[in-house]
């Protein structure tokens, strides 16, 4: 389990990484509902997270992304994984707040007449005999 102090640092990092935006109508990653998912995820790879949080504590700002890319990647993966599945965030991106199944997605079939030049060029396979 992460300590209270670690959770506090993690919340600070999440908010610094992805702050709330009025313009886009989205919460920050430090939103309490999103944070509770982030904590569950973080505790799955607790050692790596603890390590990254300790490194962040030494830097204390977003320059951490450049100065400690590996540790930043650990935190970015967890924060982004939980943030970009939040219903409010998905809706702001024009997506339905649901998993892919069972509704699936509509797709354009596409224009198969684009194959005309390929057909016009003729066979390209290498003959063996």
């Amino acid at each position: 389990m992460l300590s209270e102090a670690e959770i506090e640092t993690l919340t600070g990092v999440a908010g610094l990484m992805i702050p709330a935006s009025e313009a886009h109508g989205v919460p920050g990653a430090d939103d309490s509902a999103i944070m509770s998912e982030i904590i569950v995820s973080a505790e799955r790879t607790e050692d790596a997270v603890r390590n990254a949080l300790a490194a962040f504590a030494e830097v204390g700002d977003s320059s951490f992304q450049q100065s400690h890319p590996d540790e930043a990647a650990v935190l970015q993966t967890i924060v982004a994984s939980c943030y970009y599945r939040d219903a409010r965030v998905l809706v702001s991106l024009g997506r339905k707040p649901q998993p892919p199944f069972p509704e699936g997605h509509e797709m354009e079939e596409g224009d198969f007449s684009l194959l005309d030049p390929v057909r016009a060029r003729g066979e390209i396979w290498r003959k063996v005999d």
Binding site: L16, M17, I18, P19, S21, A23, H24, V26, S62, F64, Q65, A72, A73, Q76, T77, A80, S81, Y83, Y84, R85, V89, L90, L93, R95
Partner: peptide, 21 residues
């Protein structure tokens, strides 16, 4: 979406903070 964010971090085109969204 999650994977798109991770690509942005990897490529250095997705900043922390203000410019993220």
């Amino acid at each position: 979406p999650v994977n798109a964010a991770l690509a942005g971090y990897e490529w250095g085109t997705l900043p922390w903070g203000e410019g993220h969204h």
